[in-house]
Design a protein around this nucleic acid. Sequence first.
DNA 1: TAGATTGTTAATCGATTAACAATC
DNA 2: TAGATTGTTAATCGATTAACAATC
Lengths: 248, 248
Amino acid sequence: MLDSGDDVRAWSIPESTVLRLPVYQRILMNFQHRGLNTISSADLGRLSGENAASVRRDLSRLGSLGTRGTGYNVTTLIRQIDRVFATNEPHGVVLVGAGNLGRALVHSKNFFGHGAELLFVFDADPLLIGTELGGVTVLAEELIQAQVTSASVQLAVLTVPVAAAQSVAERLVAAGVRYILNFAPTTLHVGTEVTVRYVDLSIELQALSFYERDDAARHSGPSIGTAGITNSARSRKSRTHRSSAKPR
Amino acid sequence: MLDSGDDVRAWSIPESTVLRLPVYQRILMNFQHRGLNTISSADLGRLSGENAASVRRDLSRLGSLGTRGTGYNVTTLIRQIDRVFATNEPHGVVLVGAGNLGRALVHSKNFFGHGAELLFVFDADPLLIGTELGGVTVLAEELIQAQVTSASVQLAVLTVPVAAAQSVAERLVAAGVRYILNFAPTTLHVGTEVTVRYVDLSIELQALSFYERDDAARHSGPSIGTAGITNSARSRKSRTHRSSAKPR
DNA sequence: TAGATTGTTAATCGATTAACAATC
DNA sequence: TAGATTGTTAATCGATTAACAATC
């Protein structure tokens, strides 16, 4: 039952759009649950905190999915976003680091799913090895090479201490991993064939603190020009960049 | 012992720079530990994964801190970045949500610190109320209004389930909070006087999965133009946006 | 002086958004 | 037809980076 939209190019979607699509998806699921059939770019914008024009531009990357005068069909949109993220085509993920953060991610309802399936968990701590996490048994990090290679896992989540991050990353890459979501607050030096995405939680708080401090430095004079803004605005940029994304 | 640089304007630093400064700071601390006195923009670039010109442009926002022909003095740079982030001028932070993620953040060596001091932890779960976390006792969420107001806390970290996020945010705002770091995967609707920073961990994994999928769709043909890149590149953008940042 | 490296200019690139013709 | 809403154009804004004069 695949329609002819099968050849709609999913690639060359800008990163900013890639980061917003999951947000729209959540709102769409919510609409679906409530039995609503259509949604306008204005609604999606209001609920996601984005500009309606941005929403339309984002969605237009997936094809011409809306109906002028009516809006977007909720189910169609969900299906198309699922297609872009290959939600129905599960791919294995390995987690290294079964500490607080690793466990928090595994127990989070939202982290895995969306097609991502947790296949292995590794840790260096003998006390954690052999325990169960997310449906799998925590293995010693020495087993990364053997296990990850034989299962052909491409994607890894790194929640190890800074001191271990580089060497674990090298092990993962040697075992065939090509995409790393790195939570350790350190730069990983890996080959250009590997895409690393950095999430540094402490930077997030520092950035917010900066703005607190910065606003205070403005002497809390009457804030200039808040005219017409009714909503808390903020976008959803995020940190990334793919090794291969800078070819020149 | 404040030098005349006191009037160097720390404000109007672009967000992209604000997000990179803590990365530089980490590298600088490392240099300091190793007894190195100076660092060049080329070194900082290599170690942070950024372009050397970007590094220089970022640092030039803090003033003219380098010495042509020599580089930057490590200690000076650390001190200046500390000044921008007001690291020595501690400010209180409240955490709501003592679940897995909240505990992971509190136990993380890197999350608090940098001037951020955990003053209160709140949770709705009676089993958690009264337990200790990060040096404070977990309190019932009903106490937010009284405690946060009297302590004049401006900054909150939200690690509650989606279902609770909006109402907790409203409570926090009513109690005087003006900056929220929101880990709940939902848009918060708060007044324009409140700055919300979103960290959505599941989107990070979905984005990386998208690229895995996307690269695969390219049929693994010989990747075009990796000429000259020797390093894993990627930047450190992040999701934010301040309510007041869109005055027009 | 010669070599190294900054600080900044100018070019480029990408992301956002107002506006509006197309069209349901 | 009249009203609503998309898809896209074009303007704008901000971020990145090569290049180089300034200068230690």
